[in-house]
Amino acid sequence: MRKTGHRSLAVLAVLSAAVLGLTGCDAVGGNAPGPAGTGTGRVKPTPTPVWDRSPESVAAVGDSITRGFDACSVLSDCPEVSWATGSSEQVDSLAVRLLGEREAAARSWNYAVTGARMGDLAGQMAQAALRRPELVTVMAGANDACRATTAAMTPVTDFRAQFEEAMRTLRGALPKAQVYVASVPDLKRLWSQGRTSALGKQVWQLGVCPSMLGDPDALDAAATQRRETVRKRVEDYNTVLKDVCAEDRRCRFDGGAVYAYRFGTQQLSRWDWFHPSIDGQARLAEIAYRTVTAKSG
């Protein structure tokens, strides 16, 4: 009996130790929630995504493309067909696609200026920030390449500093505003399409992008080199836009979609054969909407 008693005590001790061991660990499994009120395994709330795919207001900054220049009449702005904020049913602008026609009229604003260069963007950002938009669209850089000569084009280092300044200006006022950045179009592609129009070439003589469009029919080595120089500069600008945007978690670059888009004669102004037509504006709106509403940037 004495030995049996000792054996019983030993078994009891082992069982007690096992129970104590379980109470010190997760007795209901490593992935299961703990008892109510303990805080262990409590379900965490789903974090709010950094990028909102359905912003409720839009402000646009940039140059003549965002102003709808030459889309409705020669050498004139036509903001109602702007890809970013226009009201035209033919375009179905980004603002209309995101907000609906009625809300877009009340909650979208266009601060782009025909002829603007990247150095002007900070001032436009400051104006746009006063409206406190949830999304700001950027399309700028073509005029930095469209200069009287290739030597007059904005240096890439200056372009970068100016874009960074513009982003700092916006962030100083609106830390959580989202930014959509469109790439600069392939200006050489526009030249190759527009040079087939006698009227277009006449309008080009009025000073439309002379670095690319000057002497449009010249195909000698110097002219070819000039156009390639402009094209390379545009590609460098797009690299800057991509890199600077990547440093901001609330910024989305279009991935070069506008640069890669093959504008045809239907997408170019019938007056200057260089700026987007109404149809071209619609294509830009499609690219922007696809980028803004994508599940990931």
Rank of each mutant, 00 (worst) to 15 (best):
residue 3 K to W: 13
residue 16 S to V: 13
residue 25 C to G: 08
residue 28 V to R: 06
residue 41 G to E: 13
residue 44 K to G: 00
residue 44 K to A: 14
residue 52 D to V: 03
residue 57 S to P: 01
residue 63 D to K: 06
residue 64 S to L: 10
residue 65 I to N: 12
residue 72 C to E: 12
residue 75 L to T: 06
residue 83 W to A: 10
residue 86 G to K: 14
residue 89 E to H: 06
residue 91 V to D: 09
residue 96 V to M: 13
residue 102 R to P: 00
residue 102 R to H: 03
residue 116 A to N: 09
residue 117 R to D: 13
residue 123 G to I: 09
residue 125 M to C: 10
residue 131 R to D: 10
residue 132 R to I: 00
residue 132 R to K: 14
residue 135 L to I: 10
residue 138 V to F: 11
residue 141 G to H: 10
residue 141 G to V: 02
residue 142 A to Y: 05
residue 145 A to R: 09
residue 146 C to R: 11
residue 168 R to H: 10
residue 174 L to S: 07
residue 174 L to F: 05
residue 175 P to K: 13
residue 175 P to D: 04
residue 177 A to Q: 08
residue 179 V to S: 05
residue 190 L to N: 04
residue 190 L to P: 00
residue 190 L to Y: 10
residue 191 W to T: 11
residue 195 R to M: 11
residue 197 S to Q: 07
residue 200 G to L: 07
residue 201 K to Y: 03
residue 201 K to Q: 15
residue 202 Q to C: 02
residue 205 Q to Y: 03
residue 206 L to F: 10
residue 216 P to V: 03
residue 226 R to G: 00
residue 227 R to Q: 02
residue 228 E to F: 11
residue 229 T to W: 04
residue 233 R to T: 15
residue 239 T to K: 13
residue 240 V to P: 00
residue 241 L to P: 03
residue 245 C to I: 09
residue 247 E to N: 08
residue 247 E to C: 04
residue 251 C to I: 03
residue 252 R to T: 12
residue 253 F to W: 15
residue 258 V to K: 01
residue 261 Y to N: 03
residue 265 T to D: 08
residue 270 R to C: 01
residue 276 P to L: 11
residue 277 S to Q: 07
residue 281 Q to E: 15
residue 286 E to A: 15
